[in-house]
């Protein structure tokens, strides 16, 4: 398609800018959650996932599921910026009649494997895809991106047991561990720690990294499996609202939408201007 090659840093910056604009235009929530995972998604789509934007259903593609569907704006932006559909379409996000719904949808959106929104569904479906790849002897990988609050859902732990038992080393769960869920901090809501040890005890290989460090993300997500015969869990320590100072690490910006001066200030920060 003759698309410009951009760095993952630039891709992440564009995802953040789109996210702020999309959520502002439509008046939708969850901008903090999108800013949190922007670097993860940028490295996935920029460097890791074997996908073909011109052939979104290419059978050999790596599968990616956004289980924390409320951060769908970030995936829509990444797909648009990497050529799955025109960037202009992002302007329809959260508008009446648009197929770019607030929670990520597969219908009519090239590159989205699974509609999500209700939490705790993506990892089981990823397990099924990974198991299918094993049955068919296919080499593609399955990546599932979850939120930390989402790990409250018991269904995830059924899936975690399953993947460990069946040695699904073609499956990667990435946790966007920003330590904040809807109403409060994770530690004050339903503590996950010791988190890495839980995954390890269930038979997973775990890597803990800075989820905003692109080199670390690429290294962790490229060498799959980390350990033979084990699914991989990448716990990406992140900052909710990352990139916009007044949104960072606050519960407020899970639901709040930037308007007026706040929108201007957020976009200025993302442009790197004072």
């Amino acid at each position: 398609m003759g698309r410009e090659q951009i760095s993952t840093q630039e891709l992440a910056r564009r995802i953040r800018r789109h996210a702020v604009e999309m959520t502002s235009r439509g008046g939708s929530s969850h901008v903090g959650a999108v800013l949190s995972l922007a670097d993860i998604v940028a490295v996935l789509y920029g460097r890791v996932l074997r996908v073909r934007p011109d052939e979104p259903r290419w059978p050999g593609r790596d599968r990616f599921i956004l289980s924390k569907g409320h951060a769908g704006a970030g995936v829509y932006a990444a797909l648009a910026e990497t050529g799955f559909f025109p960037v202009e379409k992002l302007r329809t996000h959260y508008q009446d009649g648009s197929d770019l719904s607030g929670h990520v949808s597969h219908k009519g959106i090239p590159g989205v494997e699974l509609s999500t929104g209700s939490l705790g569904h993506g990892l089981s479906v990823g397990c099924g895809m990974a198991y299918a790849a094993k049955l068919d002897g296919k080499p593609h990988r399955v990546f599932v991106l979850l939120s930390d609050g989402e790990c409250d859902e018991g269904s995830n732990w059924e899936a975690i047991l399953f993947a460990g038992h069946h040695k699904l080393d073609n499956l990667v769960a990435i946790i966007d561990y920003n330590k904040i869920q809807s109403l409060d901090r994770v530690s004050r809501t339903l503590a996950l720690e010791p988190f890495a040890e839980k995954w390890q005890a269930f038979g997973w290989a775990v890597r803990e990294i800075d989820g905003h460090d692109h080199a670390a993300l690429e290294a962790a997500l490229t060498e799959i499996p980390v350990e033979a015969d084990k699914p991989t869990c990448v716990i990406a320590h992140t900052v909710k609202g990352k990139g916009v100072s007044f949104m960072e690490n606050t519960v407020l910006w899970h639901y709040r939408t930037a308007k007026g001066d706040e929108l201007e200030a957020a976009l200025r920060e993302l442009e790197g201007q004072p």
Binding site: M129, A132, F162
Partner: peptide, 22 residues
Amino acid sequence: LNLGVAEANMIGVAAGLALEGF
């Protein structure tokens, strides 16, 4: 495939398998 006493995961896994043509 016996998935154990885990019905929610069974349906999710079934969905993943069906997405891959099973």
